[in-house]
Structures are given as C-alpha cells and as structure tokens.
C-alpha cells in the first residue's frame, strides 16, 4: 500500500511540501529570540532605517559611483575597462575588450546580481571557428549577443523601476587557486556585514551547478559561514540545509580557510569610512594577482548569512550599539576589528 505509484507520485511530494509548515511556531519564535536571529522587519526599521541615510544609497546602488568612490579612497577594485552610456557607443565595446583575458558586463544600477554577464576568452580551437568569447557555461557568445545585452542594460531592464542605466565593463577576476576547488563556475565571493565600521558576520558564497553559476543563496548557491576571528569555515548550507561537502567538486567545506583574512576585514571596514553607511553588506573577491578586491556594496544585505553562520546577528549588533553608548567612538579600523574578534571569543556560542 505504501509503495503504490500513486502514493509515491502524489502523497510523498505533498508530505514533503507540507512538513516545513507543520512546525511549533511559538517554540520557533522563542528559539529565534533566544538566538538573536534578526527578522526582515527588525532589519528594515532598527538598522537600515536608522543607520543608512537615504541620500547615501546612490553610492552603493550605482556600481559606477561605488567604483569611483573606491578608487579615490584607495580601496582596491577590479579594473574598469569601459563605461557604455549611450546606445550608439555600444559597438565600440569590441575594441575596448580586445585582447583581455575575459571581462564582465554589469548594469550600474542592477540589483541582486541581475544582468551581470561574465565573458570568458575562447580557447584556440574555438577561435579557429571564429568564436572569440564564451559564456561561463562554455557556450559561444557572439558580438551581437554582447551588443544585445548592453542594449538591454541601457534600456533599464535590470534596474529598479526600469530607469535607463549605464553598463560598466570591468576586467575579469582571476579566481585565487585557494578557491578554485570550491567553485563550480563563476567567482566565489565573500560577504561581510559591517555595522558602524565593525565587521559583524561573514559568509563565503560558492556558486554551483544548482545555482547556474550564480552566487545568490536563494538561487541555490552554497553559503559558508566564516569566523570573523580566524577566517575559517564554521558551517555550510545549501537551500537552507546543512551540508559538509561542495555538491559539485566534493571538496570538504569545513577545511575552507579564507586566505589574506586580515586584509579582507580591513577592506570591508574601509568601505564604511568611505560611504558612511552604518549597516552595510560588503562583497569581496580574491584575485590571484591583486588580492582582495571590492566587488560591490549593498545597503540592504540579506538575512541568510545567519543561517550560514548558524548564529544570529542581533547580539553582535547590540554589542556594537552599547559600545558606542559607553565609548562614544569605536576608533580606528584595527580597533574595530579587534573589538569584534574579542567579543566573539568571549561570547562564543
């Protein structure tokens, strides 16, 4: 009876769908409170609304502005190859990217990784057939494809509310060998939440087959919580479920230690000083040659980082808030990093 095809086809998936809903909601509520898990409403009202001034948003919502600001403030970013602002400039792109080892096209005002096109150079075999660029999945990418993507960006397909946009073309990041075994396609990046210049929580985002090369957790990427004190992995999740090994490469995730961790924290904290945004998500990549580079900033960083770290944001945020109250100032970047590392070792959960 239990193994009839109808049961397997209909009842089992239905059960699988419904079980997540059958939870003791009140107990979950208490558990979340105890652990200090931050919810969306709390983030929006108590942190983003209070610490992120509206007028500073364009600095992070526009990738071109972020990039220029970073360059002025000596924060390392991937090299800018071109900025396409008008439809008639689009054909010039081909000359600008000729001879580069791959490049990346981004809408300046895209959100959530929308509209990012990563272009790889074709190998010798493909070049003989007249293909010069490839997608990350190895399929050829024609000049028309690139022009169409740029045109879409300028038309505002990827920007909020459909505002017309500009396309930022930057040099491709060469993934550090330390990370190549942890990624399927694309570039693994590091998200650090910085509150009032203090690094609060960090997570590596590893793209995989299921996420189609994208590094967004809700699209199926792997999230690995990283210890602020050491840069070592704490916990890893995919689709909200704990995992121990990378689903594609089979690499054990608990061995992951982020190299150049101190510089990464320095870079993240510098972004607060540069933008003035109190509650900030900093996305960093590690380049083989150039070290940590600022990829982009986010004034509304998501909450999934708590799942990856198996820890709540609130205790750390409250600690920083109470330190501001008692000390008035949080001091230099080194002092701020030291404060959080100290706090985490004394309050290890």
């Amino acid at each position: 009876m239990m193994s009839t095809p109808i049961y397997n086809r209909l009842i089992t998936p239905l059960k699988k769908r419904l079980t997540p809903w059958c939870i003791p909601y009140f107990k979950v509520h208490t558990a979340l409170k105890k652990k200090g898990i931050m919810g969306m409403n709390c983030r929006n009202i108590r942190y983003i609304g209070r610490y992120n001034a509206r007028k500073l948003y364009p600095l992070v919502d526009d990738k071109l502005k972020t990039k220029k600001l970073a360059m002025v403030n000596a924060v390392n970013v991937p090299d800018l190859l071109d900025v396409v602002g008008e439809q008639h400039d689009i054909p010039n792109i081909h000359a600008k990217v000729k001879g580069t080892a791959g490049f990346c096209i981004k809408p300046a005002q895209g959100s959530g990784g929308k509209g990012i096109l990563v272009v790889l150079p074709a190998d010798a075999d493909a070049q003989k057939e007249g293909v010069s660029w490839l997608r990350t999945n190895g399929k050829p990418l024609s000049q028309q494809d690139i022009e169409r993507h740029l045109s879409n960006i300028l038309a505002g397909i990827f920007s909020l509310g459909g505002k017309s946009d500009v396309a930022v073309v930057e040099e491709l990041i060469q993934v550090d060998p330390a990370f190549t075994k942890y990624t399927h396609q694309g570039v693994p990046d590091l998200r650090i939440i910085v509150f009032q210049g203090v690094p609060i929580m960090a997570m590596m985002r590893l793209s995989c087959e299921a996420s189609k090369g994208k590094a967004n957790l809700h699209q199926g990427a792997v999230g690995v919580g990283i210890d602020i004190a050491t840069g070592a992995a704490i916990n890893a999740v995919q689709h909200g479920v704990d995992i121990t090994h990378h689903p594609d490469t089979g690499q054990s995730l608990s061995d992951l230690v982020v190299p150049q961790w101190a510089q990464m924290l320095q870079l993240a904290c510098a972004c607060y000083d540069m933008t003035g945004l109190g509650y900030l998500g900093v996305d960093i990549v590690l380049d083989k040659f150039k070290g940590p580079l600022l990829l982009e900033l986010n004034a509304r960083p998501g909450l999934a980082i708590q799942v990856a770290n198996n820890a709540g944001l609130l205790p750390r945020l409250v600690a920083v808030e109470s330190r501001i109250q008692t000390q008035k100032t949080l001091g230099s970047i080194d002092e701020r990093i030291a404060f959080m590392q100290q706090f985490l070792t004394t309050h290890s959960e």
Partner: peptide, 10 residues
C-alpha cells in the same frame, strides 16, 4: 514566514 524560513534554529 520567517518562522518557517528559520525553523532550523529550533
């Protein structure tokens, strides 16, 4: 829905 999303913390 957040209670469902973060139910693993229970």
């Amino acid at each position: 829905l957040e209670l469902k999303r973060f139910r693993r913390f229970l």
